[in-house]
Design a protein around this nucleic acid. Sequence first.
DNA 1: AGATGTTGTGTACGCTCGTACACATGGGTT
DNA 2: AACCCATGTGTACGAGCGTACACAACATCT
Lengths: 182, 182
Amino acid sequence: MPRRHDPERRQRIIDAAIRVVGSKGIAGLSHRSVAAEADVPLGSTTYHFRTLDELMVAALRQTNEGFAKMIASSGGLEDPRADLATELAGWIGEWLSGDRTGVELECELYLAALRRPALRPVAAEWAEGVAELLSLRTDPVTARALVAVVDGICLQVLLTGAPYDEEYARELLGRVLAGATG
Amino acid sequence: MPRRHDPERRQRIIDAAIRVVGSKGIAGLSHRSVAAEADVPLGSTTYHFRTLDELMVAALRQTNEGFAKMIASSGGLEDPRADLATELAGWIGEWLSGDRTGVELECELYLAALRRPALRPVAAEWAEGVAELLSLRTDPVTARALVAVVDGICLQVLLTGAPYDEEYARELLGRVLAGATG
DNA sequence: AGATGTTGTGTACGCTCGTACACATGGGTT
DNA sequence: AACCCATGTGTACGAGCGTACACAACATCT
């Protein structure tokens, strides 16, 4: 791998893109806005990322780890005696109450993936990644279902602006888990 | 109500906007693109809808009736003996297998509400409308939960491009309903 | 009939955008 | 040392955008 003048340039651009999407949304993402945010010339962003799709994929992939990393860091999945519904509801609360950027960015990804096929694999990766984590504690079908429910809950919270009701989430997730085979 | 030269002009613009969003996505929605689609001058679209948000609200509101209307027309909610999970899963399948434009448009506008506060009330209306319909057959909390699950399922299907698994949806919805109080 | 204000239209301005492309720079190879 | 090419930069072009605004058309009221 060639390391020329500024080996961090590409990374700086990705980081800047994440900040731009976080503050202005995907609609506000452009080669120019990212260049300004990263304090690099326009040509630099177009050189490293020929299309905006490429840049978005790189940025979203980098943020995708957020939720999974939070789960992993809390280490809750390793204790098989803890109640999974309670844990999951807690993680959602943590995710939603912390830096909103991550959540909104995640949702932006979903939105964009509807229309941009290039982003769909990234969105699918996220869902599969979480589902895989959850598979450690339940059967695969239930894991997939939990991901769908988590998506639905987050969407409702973000859309209605209502505060997150952790007890409600725990109850709902518990119902889904109650039907698990394993 | 004043009825001047072309009383249907406003409606024609809304219909055109829906077609534009359906074919090019929200990103492709502009006063000009709508004007071209509706075959009216640019000034006409800016006159009737001063901002794009206004136009989107009108379009979203008009399409919002789609799902609710389908449920109402099938009349399934009136038979208290039918299995709600099976019925719901069937309606989702109907919605997803029919003209995809409607579904994608619904989801796109739904997700767009995340970044555009103007759209949030309309999105909330849709969720509440469906929840109210479902309240005829279950308790309000479960109804709200079902809406969240339906959202999650639709999102997964649209994002992964995987075919809709009606049996899976029935099972998942059934689990949620199994915990209903009434 | 004439005044008046809402409805509808055409045009032009200034901005941002993606893209292209010629040019600079410096490590790698010979 | 000489050369080559991946890397990086600056500038300019054409297209599309929201917006503004002067003007046309017509219903309504006096």
